[in-house]
Amino acid sequence: MISLSDYLILSSIIFCIGLVGIFINRKNIITLLMCVELILAAVNTNFIAFSHFLGNEAGQIFVFFILTVAAAEVAIGLAILTLMFRNRGSIDIDITSSLKG
């Protein structure tokens, strides 16, 4: 039988893969956004698992809202990406280092 901990460990693995993806990616903001999606998916799985094993629907409600917010965030993130591409000509992360100390 699948226990709760299996799901939790799975979602933590996905979470860390997402983190690694954010860190190693340098040339592509799109990949950055996609790794954020990955992280959100892992967290959602967590919620659903808890909701199932504890019998409480609040977890699923919460996932509902997380989906909403994630969609909004992606929309705005892509709008910013478009602007950046328009102003600088590429989506390289290295060129956005003007806050350098």
């Binding site: 039988m1 699948i2 226990s3 709760l4 901990s5 939790l8 460990i9 933590s12 693995i13 860390c16 893969i17 983190l19 690694v20 199932h52 094993f53 504890l54 019998g55």
Partner: peptide
């Protein structure tokens, strides 16, 4: 990442969240 996963596994492992604590519904 591996270290994080390892630690989280230790926390989220079968002793804390296994079937004997949270049985399958």
């Amino acid at each position: 990442a591996a270290i994080i996963v390892a630690e989280m596994t230790m926390v989220l492992g079968h002793e804390q969240f296994g079937l004997n604590i949270y049985p399958a519904p």
